[in-house]
Write a protein that binds this DNA or RNA. Structure first.
Ligand SMILES: [Mn+2]
Ligand SMILES: [Mn+2]
Ligand SMILES: [Zn+2]
Ligand SMILES: [Zn+2]
Lengths: 150, 150
DNA sequence: GTCTTAGATGCGACTCATTTGCAACTGGAA
DNA sequence: TTCCAGTTGCAAATGAGTCGCATCTAAGAC
């Protein structure tokens, strides 16, 4: 089951335009980082990368924009087992949901797309009569390379 | 699929005894709270409840004990979609894993046990050759009562 | 029982993540 | 152009969780 590919770039900015959400210099920088990065970024990393595109971007703007993106269902917030500190990680929400696995030994983060996961969500919606808006499956354990060594 | 029942009380204390982990007044109070509560508690709630059993319990001891319980795989840490603030919630790990659903409108927390979830974890272990230690599926959305009303 | 000490505790100060109030700035509609 | 609601930077505040250290205590050895 392969990794989901990045959607076409500019998608986040397009969403903002469609809904008449104001586009600013700073938001453009932040959205561009979220659109082009392949990794899971925390707020501090996102700030640093965005500042490379627009040096004026402030920490509080990053947090305010993350909140906005969350409210619009455009990004997912992850803990990744809090492998480094107490903060959160962010990633664009793609067409297809995926699972996150974090290796407790080497810290590697893996992603996995599964039909069974989709079926499970369907079961929750049906059996619990629960309308799912966001779902997060995070697994901690030992990756193939680290199994054996504790 | 019914809710998992609470295991026999005293189980956490027994685990400590078995492994030769020192039992203190304060730990006894904290473990008793974790063993008997039916709700998902955050650190502050756990502190207040533990202090009712032993007034000397300090906040830092609560955090230290939570860390210990986590390290031994005896409790799970949850975000519950951060419905109230940025902190974590804790619950005893029971025989059977379960999913958490949080209603984004009324704040209700629901639990759900599913064979499909077990199958999904099996798939991850097999297909990704990943040895699962801890898994957390948290879902945000609208409960049956709140659907319709946005 | 008493001694002993590794390990646990309370306390206060600290770090780190995230939020907020406010005055100044700006996107974009008219 | 003008205009103003929405957005920003800044600095200060909050909140969750951690840590150093002097003191205390559980529990094994005698
Ligand atoms: Mn968390
Ligand atoms: Mn991901
Ligand atoms: Zn690994
Ligand atoms: Zn509800």
């Amino acid at each position: 089951m392969p990794l989901p590919q990045t959607e076409m770039p500019g998608r986040l900015q397009a969403h903002f335009a469609d809904r008449g959400i104001r586009m600013t210099q700073q938001r453009r920088a932040i959205l561009r980082v979220m659109e082009t990065t392949t990794k899971h970024l925390d707020a501090a990393q996102l700030l640093r990368k965005a500042q490379r595109l627009d040096a004026s971007v402030d920490r509080s703007t990053v947090y305010r924009t993350l909140k906005l993106l969350k409210r619009h269902g455009l990004i997912d917030e992850l803990d990744l087992m809090h492998i480094h500190g107490e903060g959160h990680y962010y990633e664009r929400k793609l067409n297809r949901d995926h699972i996150h696995m974090a290796c407790l030994r080497c810290g590697k983060i893996m992603e996995f797309v599964s039909d069974i996961f989709e079926k499970l969500k369907g079961q929750v919606e049906k059996d619990c009569r629960f309308r799912i808006v966001v779902s997060r499956l995070e697994i901690g354990g030992y990756c193939a390379a680290c199994r054996g060594a504790e």
